[in-house]
Simulated assay, not measured.
Amino acid sequence: MRATFMYEAGDVRVQDAPDPVIEQPTDAIVRVLRSCVCGSDLHPYHSLTAAEGPVPMGHEFLGTVEETGSEVSGLQRGDLVVAPFAFADNTCEFCRAGLHTSCPDGGFFAAAAGVGGAQAEAIRVPQAQGTLVKLPNDVDEALLPSLLTLADVYGTGYHAAHQAQVKPGDSVTVIGDGAVGLLAVLSAEQLGAERIILMGRHEERTDLGRHFGATDVIAERGDEGIARVRDLTGGHGTRAVLEAVGHMPAYEMAIGVVRPGGVISRVGVPQYEDAPVGFGSLFGPNVTLTGGPAPVRAYIEKLLPAVLDGTRDPGRVFDRTLTLEQTPDGYRAMDQREALKVLLAP
């Protein structure tokens, strides 16, 4: 088959690779129909060393089941399925608590040893029965982009809002106008937030944020951006802050715009180790810090109906479609801010 590998920073190649095979009785093989490039894929695109590569790439996909292991039930050849970016058995105490990313039998696609990436023609899915979610086989093809967002970015945006306990009438600031930030806006609106302030400076993206429910857009960054949020909120800031970037300046802005007693929910993959949590930042104003890698599997069934009936259209975050062979071009386009999120189709 053809599959995507990153050899080092900036060097992405699509090449021949062995077809995946059943290795454990809990596995399934899925033929990939749609995958994509994630904003988090750009982190190794900037930093991977030649000694660390090559590594398989891609963790978001939907496709059709080709084969199942002997212990997999409820799935059969031809089923259309979507997979969260982390596989899990969906039965352990952590999965039952909605924390699938901590499943002892789980892991992350493309990151776990021996598990290939989703930017490929096919993929082996460990813990298939607990991981894969069946979709209607007769689903309108126009819905596939929105269904693909259930694999990561929609569920991650929803996780940010869920962890911040966004509720009807709430005030929310979303930091970041990437796909996750925009779908955090959608999720906050879905949960009833009354005011949603989107901090982003790319007009095409923030316009989409307004479509998803942002009531205000602030392009300024740093202290100037913080001052703008506080001006809009009577000097107090917002109760919930959803940080969808992962860099220290975004975290510092989150501290600056959260009101006393509020919540900062971080879902941007942190690119730093030391985040202030002391008296002057979080402790003194009684601010809660939460977030983490989204247990997307816990949210798929909740979010799926509104996608199927067209009530929510998260697939609008995809603004470019390429073939698998063009995947390196997708990385370049996203890295150069020429595309928000790239969809990969056969």
Results as ranks from 00 to 15, higher is better:
F5K: 06
Y7K: 04
E8N: 02
A9I: 11
R13Y: 12
V21G: 03
Q24T: 15
C38L: 04
F61R: 00
G63C: 07
T64I: 01
E67V: 10
V72A: 12
S73Q: 03
D89L: 10
A110V: 10
V115G: 12
G117Q: 05
G130V: 14
L135V: 07
V139C: 01
V139F: 05
A142R: 15
L143I: 08
S146Y: 06
L147R: 05
Y154M: 03
G155I: 07
G155D: 11
H159K: 13
K167I: 04
K167S: 02
K167W: 02
A188Y: 05
G192D: 10
I197V: 15
L208W: 02
G213S: 11
D216E: 08
I218W: 11
G222S: 12
L232N: 12
T233A: 06
G237W: 04
V241F: 08
S265A: 10
R266K: 02
Q271W: 08
E273Y: 11
A275I: 09
P276V: 02
G280E: 13
T288C: 09
T288N: 07
V296C: 00
R297Q: 05
L308Y: 08
G310L: 14
G310F: 08
R316S: 03
F318Y: 15
E325D: 10
A339W: 05
L343T: 00
A345M: 06
